[in-house]
Design a protein around this nucleic acid. Structure first.
Lengths: 328, 328
DNA sequence: CGCGTTTACGTCGTTCGTAACGATA
DNA sequence: TATCGTTACGAACGACGTAAACGCG
């Protein structure tokens, strides 16, 4: 049993029992994998895959168990390599982030630019998914971290680190009657207008729906979209009042839109970085996080990931505080 | 980075930075380890040990981190091998148990005899320690399981499985006045006599001390011993009333002694099997446990060890029930 | 006949042990 | 001088890739 054999085993499983395809992914030849698989099965003494003719059909129950432990070993091997790469200040590396389109488009550009300036040889891979899919993606894909938002408690996976809190805002075209709203708008006033927002607001437990329910009004969801830009576009077209995350609007770029505060019934959301436990992160990952949220202490995070102590978050700043401190 | 290199690394650390000694333990030559260590350090890019002249002085902070992950990998490798050995019904194997002298001497002989009858090629290693040292030994030594007793809650380590509950009994020579005691003796009556018991009863929080305190008496601890046999010997010599675990006396062997029940103030103790989490056990380990405590379900234990579900203990039988069902 | 796996074979790299050497206390 | 680690070298093993054969759809 060698590490190579286990790596091949995982690759074959990942490639859907296709040895040829697995061989390409690990940059080796197909007969090589075939042979190492056979050797592994011989040394273990039982079959890891069921065969159909010559092809692999499916993984055996024993194969599943072996694979579980093999993947843990490969993860730890990665950890050692990551630690070593940090230690010798290796400039190159890979960074896979799974997050939502809003984060990817409006929050991450600046931190990632900073990161690329400091570490030009790190290849960054952004995977955007809808809110619900992100944690399962972090689990299956070999991503380094997830950045997600919740309106309530911490995501129940790995180590969840609160980055900042934020509110939703309403947007209308400057010529819209509501554009004159001076301070914040009431939920009741908002209920008179058709709403344009994210797809996720259709869910009954969304914080938007709950805010309307709480104030005794029913929202008219005029339309939903998955892309923030679509919401802006249709708001500009006069189809209704757009409601979106405050990170997604800026007075500079959206100067044809009026930005209206929403009342306290519209609860604050929190954006979290979610890190898989027991994983050694490259330095640039922590750099990135600290760049997003300066209140973080990389040493604390490292300790929490190693399981040495529970992670106790600092006071979580609001998005507005963060952007103010950047411009100042 | 190969598994061999990591195994050597762990061996060198275990041998106190002595490469020659480490080489013996892994059945390899000293130059082999020396070279592989250098190769590992080269591939990682930093030193794992500090050198003093030519000798290894101590492990570096980086070495500590690498070692943590390396040990996890080696454990998982062991897990795969153990799973495979089970799968192919490998008759040979090793079983390391850490436990107390009482368990080793009075509880385990029968189950271990059974085990050796079923698996003659398994080499069994019993390590006896005092109650307090056992869990730390299980942690450091590569033992398969610990068997310990507590008078209260479950040991806070790994997976603790309650095997049986038991009481203490008092013993006196047949000619002793108390030998005529018909049913159980009161704590007050007991307090009139010098007590001979385990060393651990000297601790203020021992259940024996607490029982005396609760009934308002002070025990006269005449003497303590670490060995059960010593307690019996000095009891026979008439030095006092022996108090020991009921497993340690039998009407057959100790027919010169009268066995006296103790009242309910003397709380019941529980004997636990403690298994390290995330470890694949050989079949014979579970066989042994089920032989000690027939209420156990090996499938449940396996699932709990894999972290698939919490372990919910069955009703825990008392030692008396266990011995009765064996003889019946 | 193409796709995918297995088998066969030659080459290359690596590991391992023996032996000699070096340093240290 | 004894102990412990390093270096050097040769033999053996193992891994890998190329090429060909085999089954199956």
């Amino acid at each position: 049993m060698t590490l190579t054999q286990l790596r091949y085993l995982a690759a074959i499983s990942d490639a859907g029992m296709n040895i040829t395809q697995a061989a390409e992914r690990v940059h080796a030849t197909q007969p090589g994998l075939s042979k190492q698989l056979k050797l592994l099965e011989d040394s273990l003494g039982f079959l890891l895959f069921t065969r159909k003719g010559r092809s692999l059909e499916s993984i055996t129950p024993g194969g599943v168990q072996v694979l579980i432990h093999a993947r843990r070993m490969l993860l730890e091997a990665q950890n050692i390599r990551a630690y070593a790469a940090n230690e010798r200040r290796e400039p190159a590396g890979k960074l896979v982030i799974v997050t939502t389109p809003t984060q990817a488009r409006y929050v991450l550009p600046h931190p990632i630019t900073q990161l690329k300036a400091k570490y030009p040889d790190v290849s960054v891979h952004l995977q955007t998914h809808s809110e619900g899919e992100i944690l399962s993606t972090l689990n299956s894909a070999q991503a380094d971290l997830a950045i997600v938002s919740t309106s309530g408690t911490a995501p129940n996976f790995g180590l969840a680190i609160p980055l900042y809190s934020w509110r939703r805002v309403a947007i209308v075209p400057k010529q819209h009657p509501l554009a004159q709203t001076l301070s914040e708008i009431s939920m009741a006033a908002l209920a008179c207008h058709p709403i344009i927002s994210y797809e996720s607001t259709l869910r009954a437990d969304s914080s938007l729906q709950k805010a309307f329910l709480q104030s005794g009004c029913a929202a008219q969801i005029a339309m939903t979209a998955s892309e923030v830009d679509l919401i802006k576009t249709y708001t500009r077209a006069g189809l209704g009042v757009g409601i979106l995350a405050e990170m997604a609007v800026s007075t500079a770029l959206d100067n044809d839109l009026a930005i209206i505060k929403l009342p306290a019934e519209m609860v604050m959301c929190t954006t979290w970085a979610v890190l898989p436990n027991d994983r050694v992160l490259r330095d640039y990952v922590l750099d990135l996080l600290c760049d997003v949220a300066p209140q973080l202490d990389p040493v604390d995070i490292r300790r929490a990931l190693r399981g040495e102590q529970r992670y106790i978050p600092q006071t979580v700043p609001s998005w507005i505080e963060l952007t103010q401190s950047i411009t100042s």
